[in-house]
Design a protein around this nucleic acid. Structure first.
Lengths: 207, 207
DNA sequence: GCTAAATTTTACCATTTGGTAAAGCCACGA
DNA sequence: TCGTGGCTTTACCAAATGGTAAAATTTAGC
């Protein structure tokens, strides 16, 4: 018996292979969804045999949940950074930019997450309720406080955040459509950055 | 041999069963994606046996493409309606509302579409390039003309449309997340409607 | 009511898929 | 150098899946 689950020190080779597997799984799961992904695909992509995969993980589900819980941390980080002490408009606009950067730099992660939610998130619900919800509530309260203090116009903080998520992640989740419709313009993210900054600035600026 | 492909008159029973199959397929494909969906699931949902399915369609792929090409028409309709002769702000805001209505009334269709794009749209590319792209270009030109005429502030029409799509479809595609984060508020769409109207109005109103 | 065509069922099949057992390999400390 | 324990491969398997052949049944037109 080896030691992938219990809390001992993982060997160098274990570290390497588990990382390779999760890398490959990110590729495959984000492209085909949970049910559409196959262990063989993941194994090939990771450069391992299928039984070798299952030496490191207890099964398909195990790989998937490991991936998702690792992702959640990264995913929520830009929101965590939003500071209640800062200038409201600056803080929110900076958050928009961080989210857009993530859509550009981590599109597979964005798509994995999107696909999960899309399919009813049977293996993500608890993460959403346990980690996302409290953070979301906290940051909405911060924004609401800004509104109440007259530092922002009357807006619904929850729907503002939804709109930020939607409009930034769109560039990762719908990248194919975007690239078709913009004729593969190489400056898409630069233009998007400017567009989103203008848009959120105009809606957050007091009249 | 029967007559599902050739262009004769379909019998009443054929009409009914093909409709039932596509209904069921919409459910299953939108929930699990193409590869994750199974013919058995679709058959059960449609109240037919699997071989009976395959009497009406040539295979899984056939069901899928039929569904997608039927959907595309419905999907583009709100954009078609946007009128170059109308008032720019009113036209765009009305388009936003039509898209939001669609997210509320046709969430499965939205998710099917989203899942397709997410997975690289191998069976949708031609539809996107053939139908969506020309319409998109046409309507972007209309918006650009409004901008050039000084009836709208300087905005990038393409990214405006992306933002409209993203922010409205979000309520269908990420419905689960939205419902968790809003504690299942029953008035989500009403609040969203108000929020989006305000947002786009503020960004489209000349300073 | 009869027949021919349309529809549905039954009984399959080949392939793919997630997963396992057990043998083999390999690195490293005693 | 020789075990011993961690790692990898080979050879499988049962279930699920997309699909088919052909018999059985229903429907529609006369």
């Amino acid at each position: 018996m080896q030691d992938t689950q219990t809390h001992k020190k993982p060997s160098r080779i274990q570290q390497r292979n588990r990382t390779a597997i999760l890398e490959a799984a990110l590729d495959v799961f984000s492209q085909h969804g949970y049910r559409g992904a196959t262990l063989d695909q993941i194994a090939v992509q990771a450069g391992l045999s299928k039984p070798n995969l299952l030496y490191y993980f207890d099964g398909k589900e195990d790989i998937h949940v490991t991936l998702l819980s690792q992702l959640m941390e990264t995913w929520l980080d830009p929101l965590v950074t939003m500071d209640a002490q800062g200038n409201p408009v600056d803080e929110i606009l900076a958050y928009v930019q961080r989210k857009l950067d993530m859509a550009r730099d981590l599109p597979r992660e964005s798509r994995l997450f999107a696909g999960e939610i899309l399919q009813g998130a049977p293996r993500l619900r608890s993460e959403l309720e346990g980690h996302l919800k409290p953070l979301f509530d906290e940051k909405c309260a911060v924004i609401q406080a800004w509104v109440d203090a007259g530092q922002l116009p009357q807006i619904d903080p929850r729907h503002l955040v939804f709109t930020i998520w939607a409009s930034t992640q769109h560039y990762a989740d719908f990248a194919l459509q975007v690239s078709i419709l913009t004729d593969d313009a190489p400056d898409t993210f630069a233009v998007a950055s400017d567009h989103l900054d203008r848009m959120f600035r105009s809606m957050l600026t007091l009249p």
